[in-house]
Simulated assay, not measured.
Amino acid sequence: MTSQLRIGQGYDVHAFTAGDHVTLGGEKIPHSHGILAHSDGDVLLHAICDALLGAAGLGDIGMHFPDTDPRWKGADSRAFVRHVRDLLKVSDYVVVNVDTTVICEAPRLGKYREAMRSNIAADLGINITRVNIKATTSEKMGFIGRAEGLACQAIALIEHISG
């Protein structure tokens, strides 16, 4: 049996709009704004999807879930993660780990971090110890610092297994 490790990176950003929560890692987090997006706007899950798709050479989230397709209007991004997991499985890839950084001035994510990690681990079919979520601010600089939106960066390591 041989194995091949591959790495991918992902990035997503969304603007704030009227609303009372943001969805991150599949968790609804109370906030003074909502997210302007075609789906639920979960930047954390979108960045993970792009990192995984990139690592496997399977394109990007826009190719698989275009915002021009009404099927994805308001969609739960956890379904995107499960679909990407299934695409990887068909191609004989397994997820080794994902590491992420959410960039926002607010909301504070600390008390939601473990639930987000649990959701991601469950959807990817991996141990929670293989999912890391960090959070930082932009020190009040740029559109994030002005509380106009939020972003996320993700990196993923996958392994191709062939017998």
Rank of each mutant, 00 (worst) to 15 (best):
H14T: 10
D40I: 02
D69V: 06
S118F: 05
A115R: 07
G34S: 06
L45T: 03
L150M: 14
D92P: 03
D12V: 08
F65R: 04
V131R: 00
T101A: 07
M141H: 11
P66K: 05
I48G: 08
V96N: 15
D99Y: 06
R130W: 03
M116D: 00
P70F: 01
K134L: 07
R71K: 12
T100K: 07
H83S: 13
R78L: 11
H21I: 01
G25V: 00
G10L: 03
A121L: 05
N127A: 11
A56P: 07
N97E: 13
G110V: 00
V102G: 00
D86R: 13
E114R: 12
L87Q: 15
S77F: 05
R108V: 15
G57F: 08
D92V: 09
D76G: 09
S91W: 08
P66A: 05
N127D: 15
K89V: 07
I126L: 08
G41M: 07
P70G: 04
R113Y: 01
D50W: 08
D86N: 13
V94N: 15
A75D: 15
I29L: 04
T136Q: 10
G41C: 09
Y112M: 03
G74Y: 10
R85C: 00
A135Q: 10
V131S: 02
V96T: 12
E148D: 14
V94A: 14
L24S: 06
V84W: 04
V95Y: 02
G125P: 06
T68I: 08
L52M: 10
D67E: 09
G10E: 02
S77L: 05
G125T: 07
H33V: 07
D60G: 14
F65I: 02
F143W: 12
I103S: 09
G145F: 01
M141E: 11
H64V: 10
A115W: 01
T101V: 09
I126Q: 04
T68Q: 11
I133Q: 01
A47H: 06
D67T: 08
D69R: 06
I120Q: 03
A122D: 11
H33E: 11
I29W: 00
G110N: 08
V96G: 10
F80P: 07
